[in-house]
Amino acid sequence: MIKGSYWDIDDILAEEEPVMIETTKEIKGAGFLYPQGTDLDLKKSSRFSIPLWLGISMARRDLAKIEVPKFFSDSYRNTLKADPKIISLKERTNYFFEVGIKLSDSLDGAELVKLLYKVFLARFIHLFNEITHNSDPKIIKKLTELELELYEKGMRAVRELYDWKERKFDIIRTGQSVAKNTKRFKLK
């Protein structure tokens, strides 16, 4: 599946991340957007959280303003700059980079993207070292969904390289989807 395409479920989930918005217009009949959903109309300058995709589409039409999420606030950006490697981005959101890029159009775009690029690069180099030097599997607790995928692909590549060096390339292995599941089935 192509990353960020219509069919990408990670892309869909990244767009479900809640953001705070403040409405700039009154919209008749749009009260269903409120989390409680009791009012009929959407009032002017009310604050509440909605999914990212809706927030972006409203911001584009000047119906609402998106507030900067906590994990892109100035103080958190400073923490990120200090040492991106050891921070657990997963605690903030599972789709840290995707959300950042999607939000960059509505916020201060260029600076945020630059920061995300730096953070990702620093974390990726760290991750790469961890993969190639067989380290602590605890690292996966701190990774976002995107990094986790890179981690799994990296681990597989390392194993395949090892097999190739040992001339074991014609060994047939149990398929991935089967191997993961047989154990659980036996327990039932």
């Binding site: 009949g29 749009a30 589409s57």
Partner: peptide, 19 residues
């Protein structure tokens, strides 16, 4: 404005199920 919001929600649900 309401049309835009409703069409957005509609397309979103459709995309989710298809995906």
């Amino acid at each position: 404005a309401l049309t835009v919001l409703q069409a957005g929600c509609l397309n979103r649900s459709k995309r989710s199920v298809l995906a």
